[in-house]
Simulated assay, not measured.
Amino acid sequence: MKVAKRRQAMLDAVLSGITSIEALCQHFTISEATARRDLGALSDQGLLVRTYGGAAAHIGHREPELTLEQRRTRQGDVKARLADCALGCVEDNDTVLLDGGTTTAALAARLNERRGLHVVTNNMAALPCLTQLPEGHTTVLGGDLRASSMTVYGPLAHAALARLTVDRLFLSADGVTELGLCEASPEQAWLKEAMIARAAEVYIMADATKLGRASQQHWTAFPPHWTLITDATDARIDRFKALGATVLHPTA
């Protein structure tokens, strides 16, 4: 593979979440020295940021936001596996807070397998799955509708959260890096922060393509202790463990 073509492919790989030197060497069957030279060249062009042991997408490098339908079909089988893993963390009679997103909506579709749940959500796309919770009920956070993601946000959502506490919070994000959770708007990032403050346990559901992805510019910091539910098994996991994460993997 010619150098220019390989470096473009490497940039695409970093943007898709393959961010460690080890993973890039394995992906492209190249030496560590070659990978470092390529990353250095891409960094010099301002296309990515070098990190300890790898690289990350350039902060402020934004990608077009996917439509809700595009999100639904992307990594659908993986999202179903992540939802199955997340369901194992939910017990009967829990109060569960579901963030927006198609991955959390996949979990919503499984919650009728538990009894007595109180589900709180800003995820309008998940509501059809929450109409028949056995012995349970659903609270919808008020606010302004964000049609591109079918979520609600804003002062009314924050006011409702201020009067609630939950046992378990399940979050999604456009990207998950050492900086925290990456989102397209400040309102989304702020609401996630408020959700974290009201939860006893925080779970972040992110498939392997989301890890290391910094496609947007608004951020929510991780809490001191949290759980990452992901199908990724490479060296990126160690960096999140160092940031307080317990990591859960779905079964194959």
Rank of each mutant, 00 (worst) to 15 (best):
1 M>N: 04
2 K>E: 12
3 V>E: 13
4 A>M: 10
13 A>D: 02
17 G>D: 00
17 G>I: 00
17 G>L: 03
18 I>Q: 01
25 C>N: 08
33 A>R: 15
34 T>N: 09
35 A>S: 10
36 R>C: 08
37 R>T: 10
40 G>K: 05
42 L>S: 07
46 G>R: 07
49 V>T: 15
49 V>W: 14
56 A>W: 08
61 H>S: 14
66 L>I: 00
67 T>V: 01
68 L>F: 13
70 Q>R: 08
72 R>S: 09
74 R>P: 01
79 K>D: 05
80 A>V: 11
80 A>L: 13
80 A>K: 13
84 D>L: 15
84 D>S: 12
86 A>N: 06
89 C>R: 13
92 D>K: 01
92 D>M: 04
99 D>H: 03
107 L>Q: 04
109 A>S: 15
110 R>A: 13
110 R>Y: 04
110 R>G: 07
117 L>Y: 07
120 V>Y: 03
122 N>V: 03
130 L>I: 02
138 T>V: 15
140 V>S: 10
141 L>Q: 06
142 G>H: 08
148 S>I: 08
149 S>Y: 07
152 V>Y: 05
154 G>Q: 08
155 P>F: 09
161 L>C: 01
165 T>E: 12
165 T>G: 06
175 G>E: 09
177 T>F: 05
190 W>P: 01
191 L>G: 03
191 L>P: 07
194 A>W: 06
195 M>T: 00
202 V>D: 05
211 L>N: 02
211 L>W: 10
219 W>S: 00
227 T>Y: 07
228 L>W: 15
228 L>F: 11
232 A>L: 00
240 F>G: 04
245 A>N: 07
